[in-house]
Amino acid sequence: MTLPLSDVPLEVHDMSVAYHQKPVLYGIDLAVPAGNLIGIVGPNGAGKSTFIKAIMGLLPLSSGWVKVFGKPYAENCRRVGYVPQRESVDWDFPVNVMDVVLMGRYGRLRLGQRPSRQDHDVARECLEKVHMLPYAKRQIGNLSGGQQQRVFLARALAQESDLYLMDEPFVGVDAATESAIITLLRELKTRGKTVLVVHHDLSSARDYFDMLMLLNMRLVAFGPTPEVFTSEMLQTTYGGRLTILSEVVETLGGGTK
């Protein structure tokens, strides 16, 4: 498909990332078409979270570049919504649900500008969408895992972005929340948004996503789920075919230290 560059939500070229000089991702090339629900799948330590963090510049790239809607990330960061892993924040933090969702609006506010009434309205709407509006005034530590995840999702919705990056949104949530989340993601998709979801559960990956990205240190396959979800591809991703690569890359890391 040939789209004008600015319509490609995410383009990644030859991205390599190293953690403490130990390579985690290696030469990733990718162009994500708009309006898809994409699962990022791979074994533990395959660099799934690293991948989406690197897209947003949270981790430095050791090579390659990233473009979001045809521009470097920093210039288009407003068009990206992010759902971090739930454990990444301190849930004893003195804020309530509403405060957290309002944070989704901060990217649109100037330095020192306060959230307006309109921002509050958007935040309320987003909370309503995840059925959390009755909890708006509750301290975030007093929520269940599933509720916390919904709050994070509402916050991402409040960012009103075109590309969403979600890090393991299904971990530690109850079945009701899981189905609520997937309904929401599908709705986002029908509205033309692009959603990338780091996912660790192979069995549900097939049903949830229309495209899959198989990742194990490097991109093994990327394409529509029926094409990619084959035993051969999964074998490559989860099996040991890339052992030389990881061994060599390991010595590369050790050597520079």
Partner: peptide, 22 residues
């Protein structure tokens, strides 16, 4: 008072703050 929201978000969720360009 002026930078309440910036201080809040960089303390609570630095990753999100950074992803928003702060």
């Amino acid at each position: 008072l002026c930078f309440y929201k910036e201080l809040l978000i960089t303390s609570f969720d630095p990753a999100l703050a950074k992803s928003m360009g702060l």
